[in-house]
């Protein structure tokens, strides 16, 4: 049977101070992804290898790793594309490594709820009035951003995030836009402070690597540029009309809803 070499980054913090590379020979099968190779190692060659995976069908977003230098979902990256090898598998860049191929994602998990990535309801339209109807055109406005699976390949690809971890980052901004652009959402005003901050959209220099890396066809770079225009327009408006309400962005009517309350608790 044909085989291919997998050069896998190992890091065992209890005995090593630096990561090392370890090479394994795995079967080269037509239908095997890099993740199948890793599972083969774990099951048959070396049970001590640590990595994250779950669905193996590009939905859960947990098997992101750096394959031959590029951020990839290992379940959708086929070994035959790298034949005759070797294939280098490293943890996602720009994240602290916990062990072997497992990275610490708590930075992203902390940032995500700050953009209220859920539909902020209007108190005017209580569910009792029935469904919130939406036209196909209204769906098209946000649908591509809703494909994000939080795999963080875009953070791994983003050179700005690599230099400055305070940057809110591509996926969080794209997800904020997923809800801002949804006709049923009324939460744009509660996302504006985080998005318009210096560490929000303004940190992005439109390198575009996030969009190249995204395995789901989301265009975070486009979402960020689009929000820059929204934020700049708001900013010019508030300069020209300082007496007006700070923001014309849609807000829920009635009392000030505090949908961020739980996210603050999470943090």
């Amino acid at each position: 049977m044909r085989t291919i070499a997998l050069r896998v980054a190992r890091y065992r913090p209890e005995d090593e101070t630096e990561p090392t590379m370890q090479e394994y020979e795995v079967p080269l099968r037509e239908d095997w992804a890099v993740l199948d190779g890793l599972n083969h190692i774990k099951d048959h060659l070396d049970g001590t290898l640590s990595y994250r995976w779950s669905c193996r069908m590009g939905i859960c977003g947990s098997c992101g790793m750096t394959v031959n230098g590029e951020p990839k979902l290992t379940c959708g990256t086929f070994l035959t594309d790298y034949a005759p090898g070797p294939v280098t598998v490293e943890p996602l860049r720009n994240f602290p490594v916990v062990r072997d191929l497992v990275v610490d994602i708590s930075d992203f998990m902390g940032k995500l709820p700050t953009v209220s990535p859920w539909i902020v309801d209007s108190e005017d339209a209580a569910p009792a009035e029935g469904e919130h109807l939406q036209t196909p055109e209204e769906l098209d406005e946000y649908q591509q951003y809703s494909m994000c699976i939080n795999c963080m390949l875009c953070y791994s690809a983003c050179p700005v995030y690599g230099l400055d971890q305070d940057f809110l980052g591509p996926a969080a901004i794209a997800l904020a836009q997923r809800y801002n652009l949804d006709s049923r959402d009324h939460g744009a005003h509660q996302r504006v402070d985080v998005l318009s901050a210096a560490d929000g959209v303004w940190s992005c220099t439109f390198v575009g690597e996030c969009t190249t890396a995204c395995p789901k066809g989301v265009d975070p770079a486009g979402a960020i540029q689009r929000y820059k225009l929204t934020a700049a327009t708001e900013s010019v408006k508030s300069l020209l009309m300082p007496w007006g309400r700070r923001s014309d962005l849609p807000r829920p009517s009635g009392a000030d809803q505090d949908n961020n309350a739980w996210s603050r608790e999470v943090r």
């Binding site: 930075d107 402070d193 318009s196 210096a198 560490d199 820059k228 225009l229 700049a232 943090r267």
Partner: peptide, 20 residues
């Protein structure tokens, strides 16, 4: 992430000039 977001007044205007 630092809790209170640092807002920037100049950046949107500089970006508009850059963009146009």
């Amino acid at each position: 992430m630092a809790a209170p977001a640092r807002r920037t007044r100049a950046e949107p205007l500089l970006w508009l000039l850059f963009s146009s």
